[in-house]
Design a protein around this nucleic acid. Sequence first.
DNA 1: CGTCGAGCATCAGCTGAGCTTAGGGTTTGC
DNA 2: GCAAACCCTAAGCTCAGCTGATGCTCGACG
Lengths: 298, 298
Amino acid sequence: MLDVRRLRLLRELAHRHTIAAVAAALSYTPSAVSQQLSSLEREAGVRLLERSGRRVVLTPAALALVEHTEVVLERLEQASAALASMRDGLSGPLRIGVFPSAARTVIPPAIAALADRHPRLEPSVREIDPAAVAGALRSGELDVALVHSYDFVADPPEPGLDTTHLFDERMFVAAPRDLVPLPGEDDPLGQWRDAPWIVAPTATRCGTMTLRACEGAGFRPHVRHVVDDFSTVLALVGVGCGVALVPQLAAAEPAPGVVLTPVPIKRSTLGACRRGSGTHPAIAAFLQIVTRRRSSEP
Amino acid sequence: MLDVRRLRLLRELAHRHTIAAVAAALSYTPSAVSQQLSSLEREAGVRLLERSGRRVVLTPAALALVEHTEVVLERLEQASAALASMRDGLSGPLRIGVFPSAARTVIPPAIAALADRHPRLEPSVREIDPAAVAGALRSGELDVALVHSYDFVADPPEPGLDTTHLFDERMFVAAPRDLVPLPGEDDPLGQWRDAPWIVAPTATRCGTMTLRACEGAGFRPHVRHVVDDFSTVLALVGVGCGVALVPQLAAAEPAPGVVLTPVPIKRSTLGACRRGSGTHPAIAAFLQIVTRRRSSEP
DNA sequence: CGTCGAGCATCAGCTGAGCTTAGGGTTTGC
DNA sequence: GCAAACCCTAAGCTCAGCTGATGCTCGACG
């Protein structure tokens, strides 16, 4: 009988590529991970790891094993979820990962509603870089997370995770009241083709989204400021520093000097959890609350 | 993360109904099983076991958990099989369970062929009571087994096991040469409605099969002798003790005083293995050899 | 081309999960 | 009413598996 704990290490290695990273993610020392993987290799009877430079790569046999492991872990998640739904009342910790703009707007009322409905549940919120969400879910640091998905920005399905669509928001161009758009241009984006832009870092989805949207409107934006936080972005717009693309939620209370114009781009908010844990009652309750509260808004 | 080792104990308990039996099957002390199940219950957070008299019964939550466990174990078997097929050459032990009539006829040439094709494979044959086959497969005492299935005798699909049809044989009525059948009766079974019968114990499938077959022909046999072994049965028939239903394989070399008449009943031989392990190359090779050797016979 | 850090493997040593043994309580069969 | 079957708990022991130390190789960088 293959040891599932060891298989889990191999699965994690397939995603993180170094034993050290696996160890860090699962709170072991690299030595322990190395030893366990050696044991797994011995009981498998097939070479699973090949040294390549100072790293290690998985053999085809190991990759096949990882495929099976994903299924096994998914089913174990389902079993855990089934058990949780058989306990009377939701209780215990629920670790929620969000990123800043969601943390500010969506999360507080959702947490309040959750605490109201399930007093013995102990939700804890952690701001987390979207790129780290998948790993944090897999390694068990988080149980559920909110992530965003933009038009124009492809997000490949993460293996081992389940995502559910929660709600959409419209995107807006935020421009200073006293900035004059390009005359004779109707396109809400195109009329700012010559203006200075405030965008998020290119490495983020928000940044990529803005660049792609402008490309779609036929121009490349003049990037003046690079700021990740939407409330900072709006403050900069308010003092006339440039224009920016912001989502509806972030723009709920714009500064007085800011004019918002809707653009035909939407941002989706998704809930993500470990595959198989979507039926966990606490996770399901949280996602349902987030969905309902947002979609009932005007 | 639920502990699969513990889940396996629960699964076994669901089939064997007492902790002592689980312990015996998996080579533990009952104390160890009890402790592990207690731990499982604690980490599940739900009552899994209820004392009932001096036994213990599974709660609905435990039964649900067993369902998930079956899937997990199946997938782990598949993973093991995939690994085995990636090893170069078949090697290691292959524990085969058979019951006497198969052991005598089908198995020896099959083992020889297997040894010929895969010299590093170490097949070991164990005669086993058909009723114990399922448990022995599940607990890992056996890797593959041959079982029989008769017309008239329903065999409910065993959870956790996979069965593949290997070959069929015709059944024969074996009668002493000098015994006179009922005059004016054409039915090969009905013509012996008044003769003394030799049948297998009622608890066995063979015994049930004979009784049902006779009932199908409209009579209840006069049971004179109860003998499980077909070669003994034929010897008794040969000296005039009565008539019996025997399968083709057992009747290959009948005693001189025995007359065989075919009846429209067939016996099927099936291969059984743990669910998911059917793709294991050693098991697949064995089953293929048994199928081919038998079906190529006249 | 030498240095330094990242990464992996191995060894030695320790700790606790999980086993066995022992013993006691309850139920069932005879 | 006694014995056997069955389960649980307590106590002690053993080894799987962890940490920490050490040494190696590889790659980046001045």
